[in-house]
C-alpha cells in the first residue's frame, strides 16, 4: 500500500462551524460538513431546517455570519477572495430552474462561459453543446425555455452548471417543481453524473434516488446536523428518534 492511498483525499467542500442568522432566527447553528471528491451527499430535513440556506452559503449567495467555507482547499470567507472565480467551481441547480427566458438553451448554458470565463463564442458554444449533449438535449439548443417541458428545463439548468466545469454541483430540490412523470429524466441525468465521478450535494425528498445513488445522507433540523450516515443506516435504522420520525413521514408522504 502506498502512502498516497492511506491519506484520505482532501475534501472538495468543507464547512466549519458555519452560522447564519436571519434576525433572531438561527437558521444555521454550527454546521460542520466535509464533502470528499466523487461523493454524493444527500441532505434531508423538515421545511425551514436551513437546507437551502446551507447550499447558498457554500458559494456565498447567502453571507454566513461566521465559520469557514473551504472550497478546493481555500477558505472563501477570507477577505480578498475572488468570489466570481470561486463560483466557477461550484455549480448550482435550483428548484424553479431559473433559466433565462430570453435566451435559448445554448444561450443559457454559454452566458457565464463567455462573460465570466471569457471564452470566444465558438469555444463557448462547443462547450455548451457538449454540456447539453451530456443531459440528452443536444437537439434542443435553439429552443427557448418556454418551449421545453419542466424536465427538459431542469436538464438545461444542470447543463448550465456543468458547462462551467465545476468541481462540485449543489442541487436544491431539483425535482420538487416537476410533474411526477418528468422526475425520472432529471434523476437519470443526476445518476449519470454521479457515475461519471462528479461531486454532488443534493437536497431532495427523492428517497429512492438517495438509496440508489447517495454515499451519505445528512439529516438536518433547526439549523443543525442531527444525524448522518449511509442511506441504509439513516433510512433503515436511524439512531435518533427525530430522524426516524422524519424519515417515516417522508416515506409515507413522498413515496
Amino acid at each position: 500500500m502506498t502512502s498516497a492511498e492511506a491519506v484520505p483525499p482532501a475534501p472538495i467542500l468543507e464547512l466549519v462551524a458555519l452560522h447564519k442568522n436571519f434576525g433572531p432566527l438561527k437558521v444555521l447553528d454550527g454546521i460542520d460538513l466535509a464533502v470528499r471528491p466523487r461523493e454524493l451527499v444527500f441532505v434531508i430535513g423538515p421545511s425551514g431546517s436551513g437546507k437551502s440556506t446551507l447550499l447558498r452559503c457554500c458559494n456565498r449567495l447567502e453571507e454566513p455570519d461566521s465559520g469557514a467555507v473551504i472550497v478546493d482547499g481555500a477558505d472563501i470567507m477570507r477577505p480578498g477572495t475572488d468570489l466570481n472565480a470561486v463560483r466557477q467551481k461550484i455549480g448550482m441547480v435550483f428548484q424553479s430552474f431559473n433559466l433565462y427566458p430570453h435566451m435559448t438553451a445554448l444561450g443559457n448554458v454559454t452566458l457565464a462561459l463567455r462573460k465570466v470565463q471569457g471564452l470566444a463564442r465558438d469555444a463557448a458554444e462547443a462547450r455548451g453543446r457538449a454540456a447539453l449533449a451530456q443531459v440528452g438535449l443536444a437537439d434542443k439548443e435553439n429552443s427557448y425555455p418556454n418551449a421545453l417541458s419542466g424536465g427538459q428545463q431542469q436538464r438545461v439548468g444542470i447543463a448550465r452548471a456543468l458547462a462551467l466545469g465545476p468541481k462540485i454541483v449543489l442541487f436544491d430540490e431539483p425535482t420538487s417543481a416537476l410533474d411526477p412523470e418528468l422526475v425520472g429524466s432529471v434523476l437519470a441525468v443526476m445518476r449519470e453524473l454521479k457515475a461519471a465521478g462528479m461531486t454532488m450535494v443534493v437536497v431532495s425528498h427523492e428517497l429512492a434516488f438517495a438509496r440508489a445513488a447517495a454515499d451519505r445522507v445528512v439529516f438536518m433540523e433547526g439549523g443543525r446536523i442531527v444525524e448522518q450516515g449511509s442511506p441504509e443506516a439513516i433510512f433503515g435504522n436511524p439512531r435518533e428518534a427525530r430522524t426516524r420520525a422524519f424519515v417515516s413521514r417522508l416515506s409515507q408522504g413522498h413515496g
Binding site: 458559494n59 449567495l61 468570489l83 466570481n84 472565480a85 463560483r87 466557477q88 461550484i90 448550482m92 435550483f94 424553479s96 431559473n98 433559466l99 433565462y100 452566458l111 457565464a112 462573460k115 465570466v116 470565463q117 439548468g157 448550465r160 452548471a161 462551467l164
Partner: peptide
Amino acid sequence: VPHGQWEAARASGLS
C-alpha cells in the same frame, strides 16, 4: 424580474 434570475446569474459567477 424574479429574484431567481439574479441568483442563477450570480451563482454562475456573473458580476
